[in-house]
């Protein structure tokens, strides 16, 4: 949980408190970036860029209350940029063996503690046919557990579009889950 007092102090230009803010903000910014990009290095780059943007524009946000939504919006936009850049690069396509490995790992149940690499592989396999927007909506809704209102605010798309994108993403993913796992 990010303290509003800390944000307010950083808004006042306190550089020492900003270190603390980076420490608190980085993990959840990284979580979204990693799930969107499924690449550790790129996710770290996005987090770094996000933190620099925050420092530059922190004074411009209306209040500390909107900080979290604002951060998610920056992260998601930076992820869109990255995804657009790598559009031409072929996505990771799993073979039978990879699916089997993932299936075994998932069979361990909710206690299965996945490593970043495994999480990346699974997300990549499940979402490789989705558009960046659908991917963002799915990750924010089903993995980051946000409401449609919040997602609409973060992604800048209407609530009905959020619902439509989410429906399509879920359908696509559940088809894959049924087929391969």
């Amino acid at each position: 949980m990010i303290e509003i007092k800390l944000i307010e102090e950083c808004r006042g230009g306190n550089f020492n408190n900003f270190r603390k803010l980076v420490e608190v903000t980085s993990p959840f910014a990284y979580s979204v970036a990693f799930r969107m990009l499924v690449d550790e290095d790129q996710a770290k780059d996005v987090v770094q860029e996000t933190m620099i943007t925050i420092w530059q524009k922190l004074k411009k946000i209306k209040s500390a209350e909107v900080y979290k939504t604002w951060i998610y919006r920056i992260v998601v936009n930076k992820c869109y940029d990255q995804l657009r850049k790598r559009k031409r690069n072929p996505e990771f396509v799993a073979d039978e063996l990879t699916w089997e490995l993932i299936s075994n790992r998932l069979s361990e149940g909710p206690s299965a503690d996945l490593e970043n690499k495994e999480t990346a592989q699974i997300i990549s396999l499940l979402t490789n046919k989705l558009s960046p927007k659908q991917k963002a909506v799915f990750i924010l809704s089903d993995l980051e557990e946000m409401s449609n209102d919040e997602i609409s605010e973060i992604t800048g798309i209407s609530k009905s579009a959020v619902k439509a994108n989410l429906h399509y993403a879920r359908k696509n993913i559940s088809e894959k889950v049924e087929k391969y796992l």
Partner: peptide, 24 residues
């Protein structure tokens, strides 16, 4: 969560992914 489970498998996968937060 607003979604109704598509299937048991889907839900299971989601739970595992949700619990394994990427570690920085």
């Amino acid at each position: 969560m607003t979604m109704k489970p598509e299937s048991e498998k889907y839900n299971k996968v989601l739970n595992i992914l949700r619990n394994s937060k990427p570690l920085l």
